[in-house]
Every structure is written in C-alpha cells, then in structure tokens.
C-alpha cells in the first residue's frame, strides 16, 4: 500500500487515511485548529461559512450511526452540503462496485468523501482512484485505521493533560481487531508519549505488537498501575461467539473497568471510550458515569476535530 498518498506534492495533507507516517507537527496543527473550532461550537451560531458550496458525501459501506452523525454535524457547521449514503442498503446490493459508486458521485461534483468500510484499505483505494481535487477521509476501514477517532482522543488527552511527554497511557480491550487501537498507538507514539501499554487477554493481543513501540500486559491490574490515561476499546459482541473469549462474565471479571481496577491508576487518571459502550462488559457504569470519565467531552471535541480535518483538507 502506497504510504504517502495522503501527502500532496507541497507536503500538505491531501487525504486523511491513517495516522501512520504523519509527522507530529501535522497532528499538532490539526489539534490546534480544532481548538479554534471548539470556540465556534460554543457560540450562539455554531456555524462558519468556510466550506459553503462544497459537497461532502458520507459513504458508509458499514453501518455506524454515531460516526456518521458527527461527520455530518461537522460538515454542516462548516456550511458544506452533506449527503449520507448508506451503501450496503442501496447500490452494492444491486451489484454496483465501490468505485462505480465513487465515479457516479464524482460526476455529481463531490468535493470530499468520508468513507467507512469493513474492508481494510477501502479508503486508500478510493483516494488513489479519485481526481486530484477530491479529498478522502477514512472514517474506519476494517481492522486498519480510524484516524479521526485517534485525533479526537489526542485532543481530549491534550485538553486534560496538556503535555504528552510524561504520560503513561493504557489501551484496554480487543486490540487485535481494533482499528481505533492501531490509530491511537501511532498517534500516541508520534506525539511523544513515552509509555503506551496495551492490556488484553493474550488471544486479543496481536502477535508482535511490541514492534509498534507498546508494552503488552495480559494482567490488567499490573497494566493499570500509575497510568494517566485509560483508552477503553469497545468489545465487539461477535468476538464472544468464537474461541477467543470464554464468556462476557469472565471478560468483565478480568478486563472490565470497575472502580476497584481504576483505583490502581493515578488518582487523576482520565477514562476514555470511543463509544458506543457495552456497560457491564468492558466498562462498569460506575466508571462510565463517574468523575474520571471524559467520554462525553470526547464526543463534543470529536466534532471540532472533524471540522478541523475537513477544513484543512478542503483548503489544500
């Protein structure tokens, strides 16, 4: 897969497909821009005219109400025209290929595609295919990447912890199947977090995960010691059906985040989750709704971060 397809000849961001390979300065630029957009979303008129007249298509080949909604709100707050296509339910079932769909929408003068697909590499494929004036944002592809989620997580960490350089961050849950975890790991290491831990049962830890610069733990109690930030992952229900996990009760007992386990982390540790949460599976309600949870601020910041990404891309 061609890595630098997301950077144009002037060294600017053309597409956002993965965090991997992006310099720290570019990540900080996105986070700084997002900070200005947070100001916009707190005003009476939560809208700026920046992308007036631009057509943004939400291409969701895999259902996701939440991510699609946040992209839609972000686009609308930039004054773009946004169209949502739930493709699994329409043309794909009639036999049209993904690139045919993209060609058709490009012929309708699309300016940007937000792509969610169950296949890793789908957004890359579209980015390589479209005309140079069209921008592509990966909104999650298979197990590969979910860069805007990682960026909003980084925004949230920076908001509460200010500096990345002295943090211990733990990613907890199904790291193996998680595009969110992969993007978070790339973002955290790029931004200079000295200690990134991944905590999961061995069956859910990808082999060779250390090569990404993280420390694996299969004992959550050890892994949470002195941690500043906890990034919980959503456990996909279908994982319960295979041989990877014994049962929901067992999982919750060893890897569910309870107040007792959270007490092992630093007292000012923050708890994050990309949503939607499985309460009583990966996280206890007492933690999810507790004082250390910043799960709802993540959602608010997520809109500003997506506004920042869209406006930076559209201007390049």
């Amino acid at each position: 897969m061609q890595k630098n397809i997301q950077i144009n000849q002037h060294g600017e961001l053309q597409h956002l497909l993965t965090i991997e390979g992006l310099p720290a300065s570019m990540l900080h630029h996105i986070l700084d821009t997002a900070e200005s957009f947070v100001g916009v979303t707190e005003r009476e008129v939560k809208k700026v005219p920046l992308l007036r007249g631009k057509a943004i298509f939400n291409l969701f080949f895999e259902p996701s109400t939440r991510t699609r909604t946040t992209f839609e709100i972000a686009a609308k707050r930039l004054s773009a025209d946004v169209l949502n296509l739930n493709i699994s339910a329409s043309s794909q079932s009639k036999g049209e290929t993904m690139l045919d769909t993209v060609n058709n929408l490009s012929a309708m003068q699309a300016d940007m595609f937000i792509v969610r697909h169950s296949q890793s590499g789908a957004a890359h494929l579209i980015a390589r295919h479209v005309a140079p004036e069209i921008h592509v944002i990966n909104a999650g592809d298979g197990r590969h990447a979910h860069p805007t989620q990682a960026l909003l997580d980084m925004y949230t960490i920076r908001h509460y912890k200010r500096d990345f350089h002295e943090l211990k961050v733990a990613i907890v849950g199904d790291v193996m199947h998680s595009r969110v975890a992969r993007s978070q790991i790339h973002a955290l290491t790029t931004l200079g977090v000295p200690e990134v831990r991944v905590i999961a049962p061995r069956t859910l830890l990808p082999r060779g995960v250390e090569k990404l610069g993280v420390h694996p733990y299969d004992d959550m109690k050890k892994g949470l010691k002195d941690v500043d930030v906890l990034l919980m992952l959503r456990l996909q229900n279908e994982r319960m059906q295979g041989a990877l996990l014994p049962s929901a009760q067992e999982y919750f007992k060893y890897y569910g985040l309870t107040p007792e386990k959270l007490a092992l982390a630093r007292p000012d540790a923050i708890v994050m989750h990309p949503g939607p949460m499985n309460r009583g599976l990966e996280i206890d309600s007492a933690v999810a709704d507790g004082p250390q949870s910043v799960i709802l601020p993540q959602v608010t910041f997520g809109i500003a971060v997506r506004m920042a990404v869209m406006s930076i891309l559209a201007g390049n």
Partner: peptide
C-alpha cells in the same frame, strides 16, 4: 479560503 486554504495558525476567537 478557496484560493489559499486555511491559515496555518488559527487562534480561537474570544
């Protein structure tokens, strides 16, 4: 914006 894109350093309006 359509010609030069987003300014590289945007400060938050207050």
């Amino acid at each position: 914006f359509g010609r030069i894109g987003l300014h590289p350093e945007v400060k938050r309006s207050e």
